[in-house]
Write a protein that binds this DNA or RNA. Sequence first.
DNA 1: ATAAATGCAAACCTTTTGCACCCTA
DNA 2: TAGGGTGCAAAAGGTTTGCATTTAT
Lengths: 131, 131
Amino acid sequence: MYKVSRQREWIYDYIQSHPDRHMSVEEIYEGLKAENREVSVATVYRNLKILQDENRIASLMLESGKQVFDKTCRPHDHLICTTCQKIFDLDMPYDRSIERKAEHQLHIPIESHSLVLYGTCADCLQKKGKV
Amino acid sequence: MYKVSRQREWIYDYIQSHPDRHMSVEEIYEGLKAENREVSVATVYRNLKILQDENRIASLMLESGKQVFDKTCRPHDHLICTTCQKIFDLDMPYDRSIERKAEHQLHIPIESHSLVLYGTCADCLQKKGKV
DNA sequence: ATAAATGCAAACCTTTTGCACCCTA
DNA sequence: TAGGGTGCAAAAGGTTTGCATTTAT
């Protein structure tokens, strides 16, 4: 159905090559431009949708309503640092026991969950300690 | 700082009197109009912000990017039914052990969390059983 | 009396769409 | 060479803002 396109691969590569960031549409658009890989905004929007549809990337909606993109579709939780606001993918095993526990309490089948932790990331913790 | 206003109380009452729904700005606006309590959209937006600022209500951002409002600020988890899409406030105790567990694994302090479960709600489960 | 709240319309931003042209398979 | 894909600009959608007027304290 979808064909390969140069622009789509630029976008995909850009996300993969910044694994520690979770970027918004605008950040991706501006970032590519800065690398002399300018793509029109419309194309960025269209391709981010297609990449999600192909399960090559995932997206995460922040409480602010800003959508950011994740390099992987593998289920995992997130940490949002309440100091620097950075978003981290957690290596902590995605915990199905949370779902099993809820099933027992609610008596309904649970298929998946979304967990975001808010706290201070290791970097910020270290910086605070140094003051 | 804030004064009492008729419109703000209408909005607050409207949210409180529909505890089983999590409504968007538009649904609140339309709902009030249907009760002959028309308030301008701008005022609905302004007051929903103020009500949150006063901690009288909370809001929840859905994956779709739609913001919906919650009658309570008490920390609690949510269930989103994957069949009817309704959102439920969970009575399940807000589980601090999730945070403690993450602290142990990540060695950083966790302040709070946001947990959304996806599954089939009791109503939909029953309807399915009846087929 | 004064500071906040309202309604209205204009302004804003972000996302989507229509269309002529271009590029994969 | 047919069916996606692209850029551009216009359109659409949702939210905010400026301002004159009204309302609460």
